[in-house]
Structure formats: structure tokens, C-alpha cells
Amino acid sequence: MGAPFRAPPPFIADVAPELRPPLAAMQGNLDVLARGAARDPELLAESIADMRREAARLIRMTNDLLLLARSDTGFELHREPVELDTLLLEVHRELRPLAGEVTLAIGEEDQAVVLGDRDRIKQALLNLGINAIQHTPAGGTVTLGLSRQGEWAALTVTDSGTGIAPEDLPHIFDRFYRADQSRSRNRGGAGLGLAIVRWVAEVHGGRVTVSSVPGSGSTFTLLLPLDPSERALQPEQDAVLSSPY
């Protein structure tokens, strides 16, 4: 007899269902095009837009998976001075096409420089922004901000969305965890984005915190240590830190 079938590792078992919805959506749109949608300009434009959206979702998911895999093998950061105010504006521009009917705003906008991996910090802030947009209904607002708190730079993402239940807060940064289990994979993310945010914060010597009121929205704060040259210019004061989850 051959070797018995082995169950897939937990990581593969978790990832596989996340890939199916965007692939199925693209397959469905290809079927629509094959049935003659190309002759209908409006339907053609709608199908192409859907496929682009799902392709972008797959790319983000792949990037998240690759980064998590690297983090498990001791991924080495490329550290350089990073101007967070410039990065904040860049992320705001990239999030605007994803916001739809959600208003995307910039709140407090200080200047701060940290020593870190620019691409990883950007990915973490993008993940926080995408997470906020996904949990904010049409007509709501997502606000990005940057402030200095003692020896820390604080990147914040605040939304007016559904909020997070107290029992979910301790698990919100776990891999593949969804606070709202009723959200389908067709609408929600893969449950990887916030896990990456926590990893990025920790490898930079920082932390990520969240405060939330169910039904009133949430605020995520990514705290990163200021570049040593920046700390010398910062007046001495205690950093105002929220309890991390």
C-alpha cells in the first residue's frame, strides 16, 4: 500500500481558502467576457475593473504571505532614515483609489524621522489603512495621522467604522484572525495584514496599539522609535502609550 495521505500543514490549510474567492471572481468575469461582454462597452469596463481589483487583492495577499514567511526565517531589514511625513502622504495617495465611498483624510501631520526599513513601514501603514477602509461603511471616514510622543513617532489610523468587540482585542493581531467572523472572504481580507503590522513594529523596536468602541470605530497606532538625531531635538517628556494587544 502507498503512504497514507497526509493532512496539509496548518499554514497551507489556512492560506488555500483565501486564494479561492479572488481567483473565482476573475474566472467569472472571464466567462462573462467569453459570452460576448466585449461587445458591450459598459459591461466590458465593469468586468475589467473587477478583475483589476481582484488582481490587486491577490498581489497584496502574496506580498503579505511572502513577508510573513521571511519573518519566520530571520528576515534582515534594510535600515535607513525614513521621513514619516513624506511616507504618510504617499500612503494616502495609494489608498485613495481603494477608499470608494469612504472619505480618506489626513489629520495631525507632524514631522518625524525613524531609522528603519521604508518598504516594510509603508506596507504596515497600508495594511492599517486597508483594514480601516474594509471596516468602514459608505459615508464614513478614515483618518491618517503622524505625531511625536516623547522618543516615539506615532502613525495613527482612525476610522468611524464598526469597532472591535472587547473579546476580540487580544487576538486582533494574530495570523488569519477575523474579528467579525460574519465577514465573508469575498469582502474581507485574509487576516494577515494586522499580523504583519505587529511584526514590523516589533522588529523596529516599536509596538502597535489599538483602542476601539464597538459601533463607534477604532484607532490603531504604530509606534516607532525616533532616529537618535531626532531624539536629541525632542523635549524630554513621557511618551503617551496605549496598552498593546
Rank of each mutant, 00 (worst) to 15 (best):
P97H: 04
P137G: 03
E76W: 01
A112P: 10
E109C: 14
A105H: 12
R60N: 10
T162V: 15
V142I: 06
G139I: 04
L95Q: 04
H92N: 08
T103D: 12
E90C: 02
G150H: 02
Q149I: 00
Q123R: 15
I106D: 04
R96M: 11
L84H: 10
W152V: 00
E108H: 14
T141I: 14
R60G: 13
E80I: 04
G145K: 09
V113C: 06
N131H: 14
S147H: 06
G100E: 07
D117M: 03
L115D: 13
W152E: 03
I59L: 14
D117T: 06
S182I: 07
Q149V: 03
S147W: 00
A124N: 07
F173I: 02
W152K: 08
L58S: 14
L88F: 01
T86D: 13
L169C: 02
V82Q: 01
L146T: 07
T141M: 13
P137I: 01
V102E: 03
R120A: 10
L87T: 06
I164M: 12
L125S: 09
A69I: 09
P81A: 05
A154G: 06
D159Q: 09
E167W: 00
L88V: 11
V157N: 07
T62A: 15
R93M: 08
L84A: 11
D180E: 15
Q134A: 13
